[in-house]
Design a protein around this nucleic acid. Sequence first.
DNA 1: AGCAGTACCTGGTTGC
DNA 2: TGCAACCAGGTACTGC
Length: 275
Amino acid sequence: MPELPEVETTRRGIAPCLIGKRVAAVTLRRTDLRWPIPVEVSTLLPGQRIDAVERRAKYLLLHTAAGSALLHLGMSGMLRVLPPDAPIGKHDHVDIALARSSTQAARILRFTDPRRFGCLLWQPPGEVHPLLAKLGPEPLTGDFDGDTLWLASRGRRSAVKLLLMDNAVVVGVGNIYASEALFAAGIDPRRAAAAVSRARYARLAAEVKRILAWAIERGGTTLRDFLNPDGAPGYFFRELNVYGRAGEACRVCNTPIRQVVQGQRSTFWCPHCQH
DNA sequence: AGCAGTACCTGGTTGC
DNA sequence: TGCAACCAGGTACTGC
C-alpha cells in the first residue's frame, strides 16, 4: 500500500540489510508483473555486491557495479527481508538471496505483490531507465516549491488535484496525500489549476512537504514490523483528515466531508474549509 | 501539449 | 450463504 512515505520507509528498513551484501541468487517464481522481469535480473545481478539502495519517486533502486535493479511496488507490492527458509506465499514472486556476511546471517529480500501492478526492471550502469527519465522533482528537496506548481499550472484547464498528481510536475504525491495536502492548504481540489494563485501554490507545496515528511516519520514507527510481519497496525488511517471520510464530520468545522471522482480516482474534501 | 479513457491484476467489501 | 458488482494507496499508453 505504497505512497512515497511507505516506499521511503521500506527503503530505510531494507537498506541496512542489503548494503555491502552480495547477491547469492535470484529466484523468479513469476515474471509477469506490470512488465516482464528482464533477463538481466537473472544473469547479471547474482554475484554482485549491493552498493546503495536509493529511492526515486516511488521506485527503489538496488545499485551494483553491473547495473541496478529497479523496483516499483505498484498498488499492492511489499518488500521484506526474511530468513532463507521463510514459507513461500501465493504472491511471493521474487526472492533475492543475500550471502551471509560477518555481521549478518544469510537472508532473502522477498518481493510480494498480489495485484502484480509492481515491476522489477534493470538499469544498466550510467543509464537512466526510460521510466525515470521524465519524472518531475522530488517533493522533499529544494527542487520543488510553490513556483514549481505555479509554473506547471500555466495553460492547464484541468483541476489542481490532477496537477498535483502529475508525475511530470512533482513525484510521489499519491491519491491519499493529494487530498490531504489540498485540505491542509485550504484549496478546493476541483479548482482549475490555472486559477490557483502563486501564493496559494506556495502554501500547497509547503503542506505537501510537511505532510509527506510527517508521514515518513510516522511510517518509521508504524511500519517497523515489515521484517517480521505480524500485527500490521492501522497505518496512518486514523490520522487522515479527509481521505476515506465521505459523510463524516470535518475535524475542523464539522461540515460533512464530500467525495467526487476526478481522473477515475476518488477525491475527498471539506466544502467549508476548502475554496 | 494536454487530457480522457483504457489497461494491467487480485482481493476485500458491499449489496441483492 | 452465494455470488455479482464494485472498489482499491499506481502509472503507462493510446488517440483525440
